[in-house]
């Protein structure tokens, strides 16, 4: 089932001089439980695509189906859809506003019409999932560090219990440790809740490490769709559209051209180290 795109098109400012065809005939199905890495150059249509996923933007033509039903059907509740498909925008911490962290995280579930007790219990659970220590829950969100604020903002979306969690560059601007730790948390939440995750990122290393499937956009069209190994083995084509391959892939490709290591497209550090060591021992 999942979320199915059928020939979706979207044009900004149609009929004006600044008209831009941002999505061109997009068809694919986001399957339940997937971890989709969405990559593409600036302006390739990534943001437009994810905003169609949760219904913030409406397709000009084509259809989007959630569990087999068109989200544009009159009988389909778009209001509920916004809760089913949770969206964490870039730099979400800029949207924190409440006087305490807990109140901020309660805001979303409160909007869903849940009782205050239920909202609080969901918020607490979400804060535990994003691993924000309890000592901060009653503090102002504005005294938190950058990484902690980001966690609080993500908890606000998790608390609405989405089936699909979309994140636009959740690790942008964080230091290497903060980056790893937030992405590890997201991976853990996906497993624990069995949800679908969509990660929009310019960081090929992160996408290779976490995604189960990679979708590449170029100028509003789907350019590639496959497993990380399938996609990142096409290094040259990725460069052509302004992207790159993970650092480890680039190194192992160069070694392979020198006859060291036979396997195609390495995307994990451990596997690459094993392969190179084995190849050197063999001589």
């Amino acid at each position: 089932m999942g979320l199915e795109f059928r020939n979706v098109n979207h044009t900004y400012n149609p009929g004006t001089t600044v008209e831009r065809h941002a999505l061109k005939d997009i068809s694919f199905t986001l399957e339940d439980g997937e971890y989709l890495g969405l990559i593409g150059h600036t302006g390739s249509g990534k943001s437009t695509l994810i905003q169609h996923m949760n219904g913030l933007l409406k397709a000009d033509s084509g259809d989007i189906l959630y569990d087999g039903q068109s989200i544009y059907d009159k009988s389909y509740s778009m209001n509920q859809h916004h809760f089913k498909v949770g969206m964490v925008f870039q730099y979400p911490e800029h949207q924190l506003f409440e006087t305490t962290v807990l109140k901020d995280v309660c805001f979303g579930p409160g909007n869903m019409g849940l009782s205050e007790d239920e909202a609080v219990s969901r918020a607490k659970e979400a804060l535990k999932l994003v691993e924000l220590p309890e000592i901060y829950w009653d503090k102002s969100p504005f005294i938190l560090s950058g990484g902690q604020k980001r966690r609080a903002a993500i908890a606000g979306v998790i608390a609405m219990d989405p089936k699909i969690l979309i994140m636009d560059e959740p690790a942008a601007g964080l230091d290497p440790e903060g980056r790893d730790s937030i992405l590890e948390s997201i991976s853990m939440i996906r497993k624990e809740r069995g949800i679908t995750v969509v990660l929009v990122s310019h960081n090929m290393d992160d996408v290779a490490k976490y995604a189960t499937r990679v979708l590449v956009l170029n100028k509003g069209s789907i350019y590639m769709d496959g497993t990380p190994k399938e996609v990142f083995s096409r290094t040259k084509e990725l460069y052509d559209v302004g992207l790159s391959a993970p650092g480890i892939t680039v190194i192992t490709e160069r070694l392979k051209s020198l006859g060291i290591g036979e396997e195609d497209c390495m995307i994990s550090m451990d596997d690459a180290a094993d392969m190179i060591a084995k190849s050197l021992r063999k001589g």
Partner: peptide, 8 residues
């Protein structure tokens, strides 16, 4: 920080 791989 906000750029795609080619931009960087």
């Amino acid at each position: 920080a906000m750029l795609d791989p080619r931009g960087r």
